[in-house]
Write a protein that binds this DNA or RNA. Structure first.
Lengths: 202, 202
DNA sequence: CGCTTATTGTACCGACTGGTATTTAATTAG
DNA sequence: CTAATTAAATACCAGTCGGTACAATAAGCG
């Protein structure tokens, strides 16, 4: 409607590129120590003024919530979609491992999952950010659970445990792998540990 | 020698109680968000002045290193000793689980392992603290490895994996359990996940 | 009693934080 | 053109941080 891309609105035209700011902020939070990344630093990196950032995101909490939302849409959603396909359980499980342990050794590349990293950051995350993280987390567990239930129905999941527990277990192991990667541990070892832990599902 | 407890040394008598400070600091770091605990706050809680703390511990890095050292001596050493007994592998493994998932629901009680919590704190830990953490970590892995090797020799460990990998795996799972507890997750669920993950060793 | 030695706490430092009041610049509407 | 509207950036705020200069204090020694 009014969101017409060619909107000759009143006032001074906006130059702040929201997506660019989110890109820079996401990469920064992902790669570096979240607790030591100030808004001032983000502004410096985006070459925007601080009031500009506050006008766009309200406050630090707003920025981080927007970042985690973008991360979910761009990185996590594809994985969740993969869990909704009809592929064989083991095949999907392998894909999950590949995703979690995906190795990108290029210097400065982000390691692990930003969501997990934020969840583990004990720092004072704002309420909105925290709520957003919890929401995504719940969605993930629910997705795992449905996946396991479908696989059980197909006879592809035979381990003796509830779908509920299996979902928690899978989430826990993937989270841990991400956390190890973020800490800089050897990706090959992380992958082996993950595969060993998930082997109880076969 | 000269460390005689009754030393009528010159100068103004010392009133700063090093052990008390370490107790308070350890409990604080253990229970709360490490990144948001300032030296000022520690001083307030110990009722000491800031220069007093600096004289005793040099700087924040020194304090944290001293804390993690105390934690190792008081909390971790007994566990490592347990791993050096001749008890049956499974029995020791059960004890390990009990320790890791030890439930203390009293309000404000520390959850999880301080060492793991510090390792995960992405915040800028000082060099001395970081080195101390790495050292203890290496010791732990080495202890696990020896334990597995002894158990293999006794025929009590039959899983098809190297002692090296088993040690990493055990450490990883215990770390993760600690991390979950610190995050406030349900201790019963954490324990079930841990037991499931360690079941591949039996 | 000073003199020396050692520890104390007050009061401060510069740097940085999240957040904002205020002015200036760029555009459309009339 | 002027007025209205919107966004821009400068310059600031109070608060906190890790860390320190320095003077006061309390003891033994002579």
């Amino acid at each position: 409607m009014s969101l017409n891309p060619s909107k000759p609105s009143r006032g001074r035209p906006k130059t702040l590129d929201r997506e660019h700011v989110l890109d820079v902020a996401m990469a920064s939070y992902w790669k570096e120590d979240i607790g030591n990344l100030s808004l001032n630093e983000i502004c410096r990196r985006c070459d925007i003024s601080k009031p500009g950032l506050y006008r766009e995101f309200l406050n630090e909490d707003g920025l981080m919530k927007a970042v985690i939302l973008k991360y979910h849409q761009e990185v996590l959603s594809p994985v969740q979609q993969m869990l909704s396909t009809d592929a064989a359980f083991r095949e999907t499980l392998d894909n999950l491992v590949l995703f979690a342990a995906s190795i990108n050794d290029s210097q400065g590349a982000p390691k692990g999952c930003l969501l997990i990293k934020m969840r583990e950051a004990q720092m004072h995350l704002g309420e909105a950010t925290r709520a957003q993280i919890d929401l995504i987390q719940e969605q993930a567990i629910a997705t795992y659970k449905k996946w396991v239930e479908r696989s059980k129905a197909k006879g592809e999941f035979t381990a003796d445990m509830s779908a509920e527990f299996a979902a928690s277990y899978i989430d826990a192991q993937l989270s841990h792998a991400s956390s190890q990667l973020a800490r800089g541990e050897d990706p090959q070892l992380v992958k082996r540990i993950l595969m060993a832990a998930l082997s109880i599902l076969k």
